[in-house]
Design a protein around this nucleic acid. Sequence first.
DNA 1: CCGCATCCGTCTCGATACTG
DNA 2: CAGTATCGAGACGGATGCGG
Lengths: 149, 149
Amino acid sequence: MTKAHQGNLVTAELLARFWAWKGQEVDPAACPVRDVLDRVGEKWTTLLLILLAEGPKRFSELQRGVPDISKRMLTQSLRNLERDGLITRTVFPTKPPSVEYALTEMGQSVMTPLAHLLNWAETHHQGIRDARARFDQAQEPQRNLIPYA
Amino acid sequence: MTKAHQGNLVTAELLARFWAWKGQEVDPAACPVRDVLDRVGEKWTTLLLILLAEGPKRFSELQRGVPDISKRMLTQSLRNLERDGLITRTVFPTKPPSVEYALTEMGQSVMTPLAHLLNWAETHHQGIRDARARFDQAQEPQRNLIPYA
DNA sequence: CCGCATCCGTCTCGATACTG
DNA sequence: CAGTATCGAGACGGATGCGG
């Protein structure tokens, strides 16, 4: 069985499951897809997971690893990840105190599908950018004709 | 080679690549990760991709498939997907006009890593919810002690 | 060193009403 | 049928300053 077949099988399986959900899923809070995708879609979470995949890190290490993140967002993102059980937060009562963040087992396990997705992203990045350029070039000339003229 | 090893290899590879990026990546518009994750993180895109993975669909079919989406967001999400080259939009000049949306080859190809991620989401959904419950229960009692008392 | 609180601009999303 | 236009609420994210 080829890799493509495996991929299609996984997709087909998933489709079947989504079909089964269609009726019952009313509560958006109970949707596993949203739970995970919302977190993944957050601006910094993925990057933090990648950094933590190298090994446990302290607050300031993470801040150095993501130079353009504010303390506010770093704290918030880490809290969310901790809340979801993807990372642990360990306070060492040294002086001054230090805090270490590390992936949990569940956090480790998400790296695999995530890495596949990011790998896809890198592979198809140019294709996406090309598509955007074509689309924008096709649309922009029309913009001048519609609203104000 | 076990499946776990493969996963770790992919992750490790990815880590290596991120290391290579660390310095050069200044322009956020040039980050393939953001390009893809932003789209995936959008509220409806993933669901629409799943529906279109069944086969080509018309505008109103999609709207019926996602009952709680507004026309506004449906249009916008489809536009974004089309712009990124993940779906095609074909207008049939019938009367009244009908429009068909379908996955492109690139759109098909993203379903595989996406399905893996969603599969993970479903598998670990309960774990996430449990972790949240534990976290919230541990934090709430403290809230009363800090700010106002 | 680590984190919280506040303010404030930006963007997302939804509701509604209108067009070809 | 398949959109577009406009408005407004709310979430998101950045800057800054304080506190243990």
